[in-house]
Write a protein that binds this DNA or RNA. Structure first.
Lengths: 218, 218
DNA sequence: ATGAAATATGATTCTACATTCATGTAATTA
DNA sequence: TAATTACATGAATGTAGAATCATATTTCAT
């Protein structure tokens, strides 16, 4: 079900030289910025290469077309985010599933602040290359599901529908990140207010949202 | 903060005739389909008018450009969804906030099934006309917040951060609808499996997700 | 230092639209 | 039934941008 497409397979030619690698990097950097600023369709190849400081022909050394570059970036982002969270999380001493989930959310927020283009890039794929979008969240969801499943077994998570739970968590964090990071004014990194948002969300997942009404009928 | 743009103000000319109204309707129908199928940028005006069965020039009687038509549709959808949920909900005898929220979610799912284009249309606005997207969810969020605030006062909802809670609920339902409706195979309307998804989500919001770990240290 | 492989160039080609406009037809009103 | 307003047509225009390619330069292993 999950795509077998690897990022590298989208490269027409792998750079074999220091110089080549730098060029490819500049290309990706420029593309990331422009895709995020103006969207995939509005950002032209000529614009991208201009910002990257290379020629039009240079583009077609590394990619067969504009779409390949875009897909390449989406896949890179998935890897980058996963790695970021995994590495950071590994360096923490967390003694409960809840604590891990909470820190994971914070790291997700951090990543979004450090990589403001992520939402734009990833979410555009829903319309530019839907398979990628589906794979992206499917993979994340499965990972989530697995971790939650482990936690159910250790008694740290209630035995709920785990697929639903993963999408609830992903939906919640994505929308919150969008609301508080992508929308509003630029937020300083590690902003305490942002972490309070995460805590407020965790509060809901800790104790639920609703209270059984005491007297149902007047 | 919320936009003052009204759908009608996006029309270059309001139809004044039965015939004109029908033409406009066909135009919107075709646009909805094509924007959803191929995305805003990939769907051309010529394609849209072809499907609508009118001429290219006919398009520019009602809209000044392609973007206006798109914005028109996004605004229409917001109104339509709100109305759908409000009307249906009004016809139900619900005795608790939780029950209302649950039925609201179900109605949202129903609407998504009946209007498969909604996600495509609305979410594309994030890249085609971001102001609309922000307004769209801001408005929904505010409504949510207000209703939850009332429920806090009657003791039916825990006193959580309501803005966060609204985005958590919107994010969860949006992602779930996406996952179970837009992604997978076409789902029959009123499918019980879908309602079970809603119930599984409600279960999380009822009692929370995490369990305090009994023995924290070995 | 030299040649083969890698990297770079940008004018040119080709196509796909969005939008205009001059003209034509239907509907409505007086 | 004439006159006015609403609606409809589609060929023509203009433009932007994706991708090509023949040629030039750089890199690097030997």
């Amino acid at each position: 079900m999950a795509s077998t497409t690897t990022a590298d397979s989208l490269l027409k030619a792998k750079p074999k030289t220091k110089k080549g690698e730098e060029t490819l990097a500049r290309l990706c950097q420029a593309a990331e910025e422009l895709f995020a600023e103006k969207s995939y369709y509005s950002a032209s190849v000529s614009e991208i290469v201009m910002r990257a400081g290379i020629s039009i022909g240079g583009f077609y050394i590394y990619f067969t077309d504009k779409l390949s570059l875009y897909k390449y970036m989406v896949l890179q982002y998935g890897r980058k985010l996963r790695k970021y969270i995994a590495v950071q999380l590994a360096g923490m001493e967390l003694d409960s599933r809840r604590a891990m989930e909470r820190e994971g959310m914070k790291l997700f927020f951090d990543f979004c602040i450090e990589n403001p283009a992520i939402f734009s890039i990833v979410w555009q794929s829903l319309f530019v290359a839907p398979e990628l979008f589906i794979d992206y969240y499917d993979d994340f969801g499965k990972q989530y599901e697995k971790r939650l499943g482990d936690a159910v077994r250790t008694g740290e998570v209630r035995p709920v529908n785990l697929e639903v739970a993963s999408y609830v968590l992903m939906g919640a964090s994505n929308f919150l990140a969008h609301k508080y990071i992508t929308f509003g004014p630029p937020t300083p990194l590690n902003d305490e207010r942002l972490y309070r948002v995460v805590d407020d969300m965790m509060d809901i997942f800790d104790k639920g949202l609703f209270i059984e009404k005491p007297d149902t009928k007047k």
